[in-house]
Simulated scan of single mutants.
Amino acid sequence: MKSVPGLSKDEIKLLLKDHPEWELAREGKAINRVFQFDNFRQAWGFMTQVALIADSQDHHPEWSNVYAKVDITLTTHDADGLSQRDAVMAKAIDQLI
């Protein structure tokens, strides 16, 4: 049973239109974006900012970091796909760049 409502196909299209750097992933159940920085310090600083946002929203990304690259995937497990929580998080992350 889903405890968080998922986004409709139209809402997902609007999310991708509003955040064109994000790509649909996992058969439409997630969005992904890769961020490239000049060095590890910048990447880590960005991750710290994202972590603070994620903690305040109680919605945590799936991510990885290799040197100056940060790969972020957003999905809502309780919705078995994308939800408004992912749209809010993508917007907040985009505002950091």
Rank of each mutant, 00 (worst) to 15 (best):
Q49Y: 02
K91T: 14
T76K: 01
F35H: 10
F40G: 09
H59F: 10
H19S: 12
D38G: 11
M1K: 02
A51C: 04
S8E: 01
K9W: 00
Q36Y: 11
E62G: 13
D58H: 10
P20G: 11
E21C: 05
S8G: 04
K69P: 12
A68N: 15
H59K: 06
R26F: 05
E23M: 11
S8W: 01
A92I: 10
K9D: 11
L16M: 01
K17E: 06
I12R: 01
A68K: 11
L15P: 06
E11W: 13
T75H: 13
A90W: 08
T48I: 05
G28I: 14
N32Q: 14
W44K: 04
F37L: 07
L14S: 04
L24V: 07
W44F: 08
L15H: 04
L82V: 02
L74I: 14
M1T: 03
S56F: 02
D38H: 09
I72Y: 12
T76L: 00
D94H: 05
N39H: 04
W63M: 03
S3L: 09
H60I: 04
H59P: 14
L16V: 07
Q95M: 11
L24P: 01
E11D: 13
D58K: 10
E21W: 00
D55E: 13
N39I: 05
R26A: 12
A68C: 05
W63S: 11
M89P: 13
